[in-house]
Design a protein around this nucleic acid. Structure first.
Lengths: 139, 139
DNA sequence: GTGTTTGCAAAGTGTTTGCAATTTA
DNA sequence: TAAATTGCAAACACTTTGCAAACAC
């Protein structure tokens, strides 16, 4: 059965307390209508433009951060040069292909972490990230 | 028993195939004579200057990368804004305190990872990083 | 002496910000 | 129309690079 993408995206923004502007709607559609995605600001900007959406890079950055604060996205730190945003906000981990910068999800229940030390005094664990770094196999 | 820091640092550079220049020797001493450390380029630069070593930030960056290529250091990716270098190159993981940017080691044998998926076809696992992100405990 | 290393200053990359114009409700 | 949002251009933080002078061997 077909979903109603426009309404769905609109409601997603409303639920997040964000005004459904033309730009935000376009981004929400790009981000969430194609399953789990990992994007950088530049990638998303290029996609939006290719898609016919006039939007500035500044607005992309603003929106990615607003979406992240609202819990619609989460950031993945794997590369000191770029910020990746992940449409999957459930507990999970990542493969990161260092040669081409591509990220893939590893389901959260796939990996078991045992022996995790307690958080040091005065702190609490925000989250635990596992990154499996890949290289192209040698010849 | 006292070690011989100067000779030790000198040999460390020689073994890495790097000419023991005044700057590199100073950095090796700062990095390796105080146990395991996690530094950024700016931090190390400030330390070197405070220490009386005249050295440019460009040389700090060059040296950190040369040391990393030589296996003396490894990079830790936890913050998209900064590159951290770790003097502990054995298998281990990290606590990262998000509020103040401080890193602490978790011994490699402390955490057990089970169920790690195989590397996708054509790739091989370079390494697996576990980052435990901490926040100050709320009141 | 020859090749390596350094350091400056300039350039580069990705991200953030100030503010006037535009848009939403 | 009041408040939120956008987009430009400038500013920013950090890192890298080109090249002449200094240094190691």
């Amino acid at each position: 059965m077909a979903t109603r993408p426009y309404t769905h995206s609109l409601e997603r923004l409303r639920m997040a307390g964000l005004r459904p502007t033309r730009q935000r709607l376009a981004l929400v559609r790009l981000l969430f209508e194609r399953g789990d995605r990992h994007v950088t600001a530049e990638q998303l900007h290029a996609e939006a433009l290719a898609n016919g959406t006039r939007i500035s890079l500044a607005t992309i950055y603003n929106s990615l951060h607003q979406f992240t604060s609202a819990g619609l996205l989460r950031e993945v730190v794997v590369d000191p040069a770029r910020r990746y945003f992940d449409t999957n906000v459930s507990v999970h981990h990542h493969f990161f292909h260092e040669d081409d910068g591509v990220l893939h999800d590893i389901p959260g229940d796939r990996i078991t972490l045992a022996g995790l030390p307690d958080a040091p005094g005065g702190t609490e664990i925000d989250r635990v990230d596992v990154v499996v770094r890949l290289r192209s196999a040698r010849g």
